[in-house]
């Protein structure tokens, strides 16, 4: 189980597919405790990612992810743009010069991405943000020897659903205070799609 440039492209294609398919759903989640744009922003950003990377040849996953990061940063906007942009930039930096990414590299990369999100968003776990999906996934890698990639999908899904119970204290949802409870955090849902796509692309790799 290792990731090469084409697997990363696959990961991005699958992420984009899930996000396009669930664009309205993500926007509806953001309608409940935000400003109705998360699906629109993510769909626009990932579409641009695909346009950017699809016909380009890259020598390393890191190179490709740098383009992914820069595209998300400049096309998503809002809160999600800088956060995902930062996360993928950290991932790219963590994997610098490697042509093959091992499970251990994934662990390190996701950890770096998570740290980037936390730092950029000045947030921590339990505040009902995408961190609440990234954190458990990173923990999964730290605590286990991942042999079955579907564990990633399961963990992310569970984590996403768990955000329902949380009260938002960061981001736009925080204005909803108690009323934010019982709603899935939109950024956690989009993160789930990204991890679900990672899980699928790891199956074949």
């Amino acid at each position: 189980m290792k990731l090469q440039v084409n697997d990363i492209r696959n990961w991005m294609n699958l992420s984009n597919q899930l996000i396009q398919e669930n664009k309205s759903y993500l926007t509806e989640l953001d309608q409940a405790i935000g400003d109705s744009d998360h699906g629109i922003n993510m769909a626009r950003g990932f579409q641009e990612v695909i346009t950017k990377i699809q016909d380009q040849s890259y020598s390393t996953p890191s190179d490709m992810l740098k383009d992914v990061a820069m595209t998300l940063m400049s096309k998503v906007g809002g809160a999600a743009g800088p956060l995902y942009g930062t996360a993928f930039l950290k991932l790219s930096m963590a994997w610098k010069n490697k042509s093959e990414i091992q499970v251990n590299d994934i662990k390190d990369g996701l950890q770096a991405g998570l740290d980037g999100i936390k730092q950029r968003g000045k947030a921590t776990s339990g505040e009902k943000t995408m961190i609440d999906v990234w954190d458990p996934v990173v923990q999964l890698f730290s605590e286990n020897d991942i042999t079955d990639p579907s564990l990633i999908e399961e963990t992310a899904k569970q984590a996403m659903n768990n955000t329902k119970d949380l009260k938002a204290t960061k981001g736009r949802a925080s204005y909803f205070k108690e009323k934010s409870i019982d709603n899935i955090d939109p950024g956690s849902a989009s993160s789930y799609y990204i991890f679900s796509a990672l899980s699928t692309s790891l199956q074949g790799a």
């Binding site: 629109i40 096309k75 906007g77 809002g78």
Partner: peptide, 12 residues
């Protein structure tokens, strides 16, 4: 000018 209700991006 960002997208509707969406902060503009750093490059802009």
């Amino acid at each position: 000018a960002g997208e509707v209700f969406t902060s503009p991006t750093p490059d802009q």
